[in-house]
Amino acid sequence: MHEFPRPGQADRARLPLPFWVRDFALIRPAVITFIVTAGISFTCVLASHLQLGQARRDEQAAHAQRDAARSRFLYAESEKQEIRAYQPLFVDLRRRRFVGMENRLDWVDAIRRISENRRLLPLAYEIDAQQPYKLESRLATGDYQLRGSRMTLHMDMLHELDLFYFLGDLRQHGVFTVEQCTMRRAASTEAGARPAVLSSDCTLNWLTLTPGPRTGGAAR
């Protein structure tokens, strides 16, 4: 028993296939090649983009390292210039026993020798314990600490210049400040001794720049 096709069914069966379906076998290699090439190209573009970003980050890191190296170089050059400028002063301050640890024995010996050389009348003095010395204005001392020892001095004098000569000679053996100094006529002296015309009472502050705690030095 035969079935007859319905109306229009035969016509639909005879419709030609689209060319891109019918002839796909002809372009299949080209399509595959295109897809592979596109994938490779996309991968290359993506890799290039990532590599470019990494290269820019490396460039920024290199610039940062260059700037840091330049800053260290400039800082080192600045330190060299400061050393060349201040080294003579530093050496002179060390020679004058301002930089370093306190040396009271040198002060005591200097006072004795000055008194003998100047043929001064007997004098009396007392040196207190060393303490941190505070200035009115802030002073940058780096790794060092400014310390002072107060000395009270009493002198009987034949002339007012005895005091100035004594202080002038004493400055060759250290750095100190004169906090105060009073001068008055001396009282009568014992018989047989050289009569003192004047007497003075002074307060001095012996100063030393000693290594601070950061450099391992201990103030005495």
Rank of each mutant, 00 (worst) to 15 (best):
E3K: 06
E3H: 11
F4M: 06
P5Y: 06
P5D: 12
P7C: 02
G8N: 13
G8Q: 07
G8M: 06
Q9S: 03
A10Q: 09
A10F: 05
A10S: 11
D11S: 10
D11W: 08
D11I: 13
R12H: 13
A13Q: 11
A13K: 06
A13R: 11
A13S: 12
A13E: 11
R14F: 05
R14N: 10
L15F: 04
L15Q: 15
P16S: 12
P16L: 06
P16T: 05
L17T: 01
L17Y: 02
L17G: 03
P18C: 01
F19D: 11
W20K: 02
W20H: 12
W20F: 04
W20Q: 07
W20C: 04
V21C: 07
V21W: 07
V21P: 02
R22F: 03
R22E: 08
R22Q: 09
D23C: 10
D23R: 10
D23T: 01
F24R: 09
A25H: 06
A25R: 11
A25L: 02
A25F: 00
L26R: 14
L26M: 07
L26W: 03
L26A: 08
L26N: 05
I27P: 00
I27A: 07
I27C: 04
R28E: 10
R28G: 09
R28L: 08
R28W: 03
P29F: 00
P29T: 04
P29N: 05
V31T: 07
I32E: 00
I32P: 00
I32H: 00
T33V: 08
T33A: 14
T33R: 08
F34N: 01
F34R: 02
I35N: 04
I35S: 12
V36Y: 00
T37F: 15
T37N: 10
A38C: 06
G39V: 05
G39I: 04
I40K: 05
S41Y: 14
F42M: 08
F42G: 14
F42K: 09
F42I: 14
T43E: 10
C44S: 13
C44P: 01
L46A: 15
A47R: 14
A47I: 09
A47T: 12
S48W: 13
S48N: 14
H49C: 04
L50H: 11
Q51H: 13
Q51A: 15
L52S: 13
L52T: 15
G53C: 10
Q54K: 09
Q54C: 02
Q54D: 10
Q54W: 06
Q54Y: 10
A55E: 07
A55T: 05
A55N: 06
A55L: 11
A55Q: 10
R56L: 13
R57L: 12
R57Y: 08
D58Y: 07
D58A: 13
E59C: 03
E59Y: 14
E59W: 14
E59M: 10
E59T: 14
Q60K: 08
Q60G: 02
Q60R: 13
A61K: 10
A62R: 14
A62E: 10
H63L: 15
H63V: 12
H63N: 13
A64V: 04
Q65S: 09
Q65K: 09
R66V: 03
